[in-house]
């Protein structure tokens, strides 16, 4: 059985390459011999940052955020972060329909903000994403909520200091649409989740035991700033299909 065409296809590729027999994939490490790029070395460097270096990483992130039109907020605790978030939610004009609503991940950091309580007096509902078994109907209901929400709130697995990029894996309670469908995206994460750059990120994803065991998950997303387009006379406009604003909340404990 070869209805997916693989065998025939790979045979043609092998012929084109002038190979007579199947070959294994290339070496796992393209530059063997303990280069400083080695993932273990990268992780070690990342793990041994002192307070000063960590501070520099936060400063680097703040600078990157400015370059990429990301609004960055630093808070010492969850309460003050929650207050500022609620204020931003209240400022927004609902884009789809008259009623203002929020969708949010089921995630300890997001739930810790206690936003439903803060927004209840203003009649702004917060819909958490909690489906254990999703029927197509349930999915439809949630996606509609996300697509009409004014604000989507997520956490992040990592945030890259050199570009302000959020890295989001998919887990129970962490729906994809929360970071793309609403008009505004806010992400809350701890300062410890900041990593230097892509090199450090990929090293952690492949070699840190927890992440290596979990894999990238079926959908992993990077978000760097608001949705944008320059398709009309190369004029830059925010809010093409995704959020027009992105806020990051860095919690320093």
């Amino acid at each position: 059985m070869n209805s997916d065409g693989q065998e025939r296809f790979i045979k043609r590729v092998r012929q084109a390459l002038g190979k007579t027999s199947p070959t294994g994939p290339g070496p796992a490490d393209p530059f063997p011999g303990g280069s400083p790029d080695e993932p273990a070395h990268v992780i070690e460097t990342a793990g041994n940052r002192d307070a000063k270096q960590k501070q520099r990483l936060v400063e680097c992130l703040m600078e990157s955020a400015r370059r990429h039109d990301i609004t960055a907020h630093i808070h010492a605790g969850m309460q003050s972060a929650a207050r500022e978030m609620a204020a931003i939610v209240l400022e927004q004009e609902p884009e789809w329909g008259a009623e203002k609503s929020v969708v949010a991940w089921r995630h300890p950091l997001v739930e810790g903000l206690k936003l439903p309580e803060a927004l209840a007096p203003h009649r702004v509902p917060v819909h958490f994403c909690d489906h254990d078994v999703s029927s197509p109907v349930e999915k439809q209901v949630f996606v509609t909520k996300a697509a009409t929400a004014c604000v989507g709130i997520t956490s992040a697995d990592f945030c890259l200091a050199d570009s302000g990029t959020l890295v989001l894996k998919t887990r129970p309670g962490q729906a994809l649409s929360v970071s793309i469908a609403p008009s505004v995206h806010m992400a809350v994460f701890a300062a410890e989740q900041i990593v230097a750059d892509l090199k450090e990120l990929y090293a952690l994803l492949t070699c840190e035991p927890g992440h290596a065991a979990e894999g990238l998950t079926r959908s992993m997303t990077f978000v760097c700033g608001p949705s944008k387009t320059a398709d009309i006379e190369a004029t830059l406009i925010h809010g093409a299909h995704g959020p027009r604003e992105v806020h990051i909340f860095i919690i320093r404990s």
Binding site: S163, T165, S177, R218, F222, V223
Partner: peptide, 18 residues
């Protein structure tokens, strides 16, 4: 420096995914 979105897609949604 970075595109706004990079998605790594490796399969359909998990059964529990919303």
């Amino acid at each position: 420096e970075m595109p706004t979105y990079v998605s790594y897609v490796g399969g359909p949604a998990y059964p529990w995914q919303a």
